[in-house]
Design a protein around this nucleic acid. Structure first.
Length: 503
RNA sequence: GGGCCUGUAGCUCAAUAGGCAGAGCAGCGGACUUUUAAUCCGAAGGUCGUGGGUUCGAUUCCCACCGGGCCCA
């Protein structure tokens, strides 16, 4: 009888039908579904940012005959009776729609009135500027592309709640410009890192995430189980040993940017899954890698933020090379006011550690004490980019012995603003020495040191076929993004940080 | 793991020395053809994180739990 189709009863709608803020949106949505439905695609002619670039110089009140089609999310609506100003946000920015009844017609104008903030809309019209000079599209046609059944966070205060910004990152991205900026800057940083390595002849590779043994670093792994193989497996805690196997195989320059998993605490600088960049270059030593790293950091800063002189946590920071290069033992000696060489009796070194608030474990040698004194007394105070050189052999089981000192290794960490950004060494390539180092680690582990490497026999096998002299590097990508976007918490640079399930 | 703080409307935040919980924005109804957080008028909107306890009465005090934040280890 009736020619208007019946609106279906609300099905399982998550309670949207009962809430006053969503009932009307849901009803409209169902009305559209029983009618013409939503379009499957939409042809846009221009992004918001392009229109501002092209028409920003029009004088106030100027009109053109240039037709454009825009699309985006409706973020604001200002109704003036027979005239409406609406704001559409696309991936690049915002553009105002000038919606007047004369141009759009009575029917279309009434339909536009039914739109809600948050709806996805496509619209066509001509480019004009308003009396106040705002670049706008005076629309003569529009289409509802998808309806937002839930209201957006407040337009002015946005979304502040840290928890919800992380849990519902899409809302954060919709309403907080800085969230979009950080996400885009991260993409630029990762892209530039790739370009830097590719320009130097490196090949990007992917090594396994799922392993029967998690090796190559000091960390507790996530454990899982493979049903068909009937064996426990572990998520990787580093990519190091697999990348070196590739160099053994003759891939002389390789790098990987990949997710690493460490089953440890969550705080401002640690997320259980994070992104690590590792690279290995045959025939290079750690000096070569230092030169490369300072060039790369500067290039990445330029690409990401446009300058090498940045502001971090309210202070100026210059990332242009060359970076200071200083030995760890010299920094520690300076901090404690006395020499900390390996020629001093171990008992004196243990006293020294005690006096500086450390509680040296029974397995600690000179090297571990020096390393811990550095962490405790020096690391936090380094501001300008600094390569801290020549770590003790004891705490660097994968690094090659220093050519001038058998107690040290050719290893450095790059410190900036009190945090570590890169870790690199002349790689240990003698399989016999590597086996001895692993065994020393195993003894420390048996002695109660949980921060000790397990032995990886399969890696030793590969080494026995010959690893050329190699310079290796690891960079914490998330921390680098934090530095370049001036964020003080890792959750701000990871789109979906690890959280407890919501109650 | 320890300490401190925190959870109130869709969002951002108030208040209550234990006695009917408020505002701005958003939403709803109305006016308005040049707005930019539009403006004006009107009517609404709440399981005060969850569960116990004390009390005549608890959003407020106590306990536990859940989520979150900061600091320390």
């Amino acid at each position: 009888m009736s020619d208007t189709p019946e609106i279906p009863e609300p099905g399982p709608d998550g309670g949207l039908g009962e809430h006053p803020l969503t009932a009307a949106r849901l009803a409209r949505h169902q009305e559209i579904l029983v009618g013409a439905g939503y379009p499957y695609r939409f042809e846009r002619s221009d992004y918001a940012v392009e229109l501002h670039a092209r028409y920003g110089s029009l004088s106030p009140g100027e009109e053109t005959d240039d037709r454009v089609t825009v699309a985006g999310r409706l973020m604001a609506v200002r109704k003036m009776g027979k005239l409406v100003f609406a704001v559409l946000q696309d991936a690049t920015g915002r553009i105002q729609l000038f919606v007047d009844r004369r141009t759009l017609g009575d029917e279309g104008f009434a339909e536009f009135d039914e739109l809600d903030i948050g709806d996805w809309v496509g619209a066509s019209g001509v480019m004009i500027t308003t009396k106040k000079g705002e670049v706008s599209v005076r629309i003569d046609d529009f289409e509802l592309l998808a309806k937002a059944l839930r209201p957006l966070p407040a337009k002015w205060h946005g979304l502040q709640d840290v928890e919800m910004r992380s849990r519902r990152r899409y809302l954060d991205l919709m309403v907080n410009e800085h969230a979009r900026t950080v996400a885009l800057t991260r993409a630029r940083i990762v892209g530039e890192l790739r370009r830097q390595f590719e320009a130097r002849g490196y090949v990007e590779v992917e090594t396994p995430v799922l392993l029967s043994q998690a090796t190559g670093a000091l960390a507790r792994p996530f454990q899982t189980h493979h049903n068909a193989l009937e064996q426990d497996m572990y998520l990787r805690i580093a990519t190091e040993l697999f990348l070196k196997r590739l160099v053994v195989g003759g891939m002389e320059r390789v790098f990987e940017i990949g997710r690493i998993f460490r089953n440890e605490g969550i705080d401002a600088t640690h997320n259980p899954e994070f992104t690590m960049l590792e690279s290995y270059q045959a025939f290079a030593d750690y000096n070569d890698i230092m030169d490369m790293v300072e060039e790369m950091i500067a290039a990445v800063a330029l690409a990401a933020v446009g300058w090498t002189e940045i502001t971090y946590q309210g202070k100026k920071l210059d990332l242009s090379p060359p970076y200071r290069r200083v030995r760890m033992v010299d920094l520690v000696a300076e901090a404690v006011g006395e020499p900390v060489g390996f020629d001093r009796p171990l008992s004196e070194m243990r006293d020294l550690a005690d006096r500086h608030g450390l509680e040296p474990g029974s397995t600690w040698g000179h090297g571990k004490i020096i390393d811990q004194l550095f962490e405790e007394l020096v690391a936090d105070d380094i501001w300008e980019p600094t390569f801290v050189l020549d770590h003790p052999k004891e705490t660097s089981p994968l690094a090659r012995e220093h050519r001038d000192d058998p107690n040290l290794t050719e290893r450095y960490e790059l410190f900036i603003a009190g945090a570590e950004y890169a870790n690199a060494f002349s790689e240990l390539n003698d399989p016999l020495d590597q086996r001895a180092r692993f065994e020393q680690q195993a003894r420390a582990r048996a002695g109660g040191d949980e921060e000790a490497h397990p032995i990886d026999e399969d890696f030793l096998l590969a080494l026995e076929y010959g690893l050329p002299p190699t310079g290796g590097l690891g960079i914490g990508v998330d921390r680098l993004v934090m530095l370049l976007t001036d964020q003080h918490h890792i959750r701000e640079v990871i789109l979906f940080p690890t959280l407890r399930p919501e109650a």
